[in-house]
Design a protein around this nucleic acid. Structure first.
Length: 317
DNA sequence: TCCCAGGTCCTAC
DNA sequence: GTAGGACCTGGG
């Protein structure tokens, strides 16, 4: 087994907490800051510039370094990306200096898409709970190196499409999915049947990929609107021009970018924060036009900053 | 206790 | 084509 650690140079906390993944936890119990995460069947520990594999669900698990190189997008050139973003944008530059180097991960597309379907109309702790329960119930146990396998596993891989496709409504609801259960089951069935091929979508351009992924397969809707689509494309297919617009980003744009970008007409009467697909696309295009081909990286910094600012003002209040 | 959440779907104009 | 409302459930 080759579990040799991999060096990483990005900011661990900023990268794992900026909303792209739901399976990393901070652990400070032994005095230093370290992070434990699960992805693609690997249990990982990250601290002070390195990531180790603690265990794997795979039969042949000598591929950790290969996996990590891809998962942590180690071939992304951060300085090139950050210097390509607008230099006179004070809001963005404040965030970059506050959060350091955020890395957009290249997650497993299946795991990532379903995670963001789980995110619909839920808060982040609840999303983490859904994914944990789905994994514990339907995923494979991952035993750590040197762990007595008679002991109960604490870590589980994200479940495969074939398992979720056969799960009952009752089983899925028991994981806290609520009305999302039917989306999860439907997508699983389509992937299992080969009618939704995320690998093939990966070959497409950003806008073609959106067209393939959003909403309709065989005329049926399944819980993938423009926001979930953008998250899947950015956080797993590494389409870096994707610019997910959630309620936080919408608030940020309204507060800090309307005048700068002359996009006031895109904000008239936006009740309940809801955006039609047409308006969502128009807003996303405006941001791509402004931030450039690495708009997704800009989105992560905007998201990190507005979330932290909101948390701090709530604490003060 | 009660409100609301990393949205999407459906229905009525 | 789009504004309004419903939607499961569990954190805060």
């Amino acid at each position: 087994l080759n579990y040799s650690p991999v060096a990483v140079d990005f900011d661990l906390g900023s990268t794992f907490s900026c909303g792209q993944t739901f399976r990393w936890r901070k652990n400070t119990s032994n005095g230093r800051e370290e992070w434990l995460g699960i992805s693609s069947g690997y249990v990982m520990r990250a601290f002070s510039g390195r990531v180790e594999c603690l265990g794997s669900s795979e039969e042949s698990n000598n591929g950790f370094r290969h996996f990590a190189k891809r998962y942590f997008s180690l071939s992304d050139d951060s300085s090139k990306i950050l210097s390509s973003l607008p230099k006179d944008d004070q809001y963005l530059r404040d965030s970059i200096s506050r959060f350091g180097e955020i890395r957009i991960l290249t997650q497993d597309p299946w795991e990532c898409l379903l995670s963001f379907v789980c995110s619909i109309n839920k808060n982040i702790p609840a999303i983490c709970g859904e994914i944990e329960q789905l994994s514990a119930r339907f995923g494979k146990p991952i035993f750590l190196e040197n762990q007595d396998s008679a002991k109960r596993a604490q870590f589980f891989s994200f479940p495969e499409p074939g398992i979720l496709a056969k799960a009952s409504k009752q089983e899925l609801m028991a994981c806290g999915l609520g009305f999302r259960w039917k989306f999860i089951k439907f997508i699983s069935q389509k992937v299992l049947a080969g009618e939704l091929d995320l690998g093939a979508i990966n070959e497409l351009s950003y806008s073609d990929a959106c067209g393939q992924l959003i909403s309709e397969i065989s005329g049926l809707t399944y819980g993938v609107g423009p926001k979930v689509c953008d998250c899947a494309l950015l956080f797993s297919l590494h389409k870096l021009e994707a610019f997910p617009i959630d309620v936080w980003i919408l608030r940020c744009l309204r507060n800090s970018y309307v005048t700068k970008l002359g996009i006031r007409d895109l904000f008239v009467d936006c009740p309940n924060g809801g955006l039609s697909t047409k308006r969502y696309t128009a807003l996303g295009d405006a941001m791509r036009n402004y931030f450039g081909k690495y708009a997704g990286y800009a989105q992560q910094y905007l998201y990190a900053k507005i979330r932290q600012d909101a948390t701090q003002s709530r604490v003060q209040a």
